[in-house]
């Protein structure tokens, strides 16, 4: 990667070490994200895995979700209040999805509607 020292920050530091660690970690996470996506698509195309398609995809995409939120959005390192104001509504959003699926897709299969 081309080194550019165009601007140092106000205090004259260049934060070299700090950011060196940063981009490597980010690149690794980017690679992991790409690999998980590849695995997801692979599972999709392998007929033998059809029975586990839904749970496998849910786990894998949840993993991607958490990687982005925890590392790219820095929730892991940041102040816990950011996590609280995000996870609490997200929890409700997941409940909305689960609740609607139960009400419209799962309960009817028990034949209690007729």
């Amino acid at each position: 990667m081309a080194e550019s020292h165009a601007i140092l920050d106000e205090h004259g530091h260049s934060h070299d070490e700090e950011h060196h660690v940063g981009w490597k970690k980010y690149a690794v996470i980017g690679l992991v994200l790409a690999i998980i996506t590849g695995v997801e698509v692979a599972i999709f195309y392998v007929d033998a895995l059809a029975p586990v398609l839904v749970p496998a995809l849910l786990v894998l995409s949840a993993a991607k979700f958490f990687l982005v939120v925890q590392y790219y959005m820095h929730l892991k390192m940041d102040h816990p209040i950011f996590g609280r104001v995000f996870w609490a509504p997200l929890f409700l959003a997941v409940l909305v999805v689960i609740g609607m699926v139960i009400l419209f897709k799962i309960l009817p299969t028990y034949g209690v509607f007729s």
């Binding site: 550019s4 601007i7 934060h15 690149a27 980017g30 790219y72």
Partner: peptide, 18 residues
Amino acid sequence: SLAVVLALDFLRAGRRNL
């Protein structure tokens, strides 16, 4: 998304061109 974290990192490190 990877580009975002890199852009932010380089901005903070004062590397304007990157």
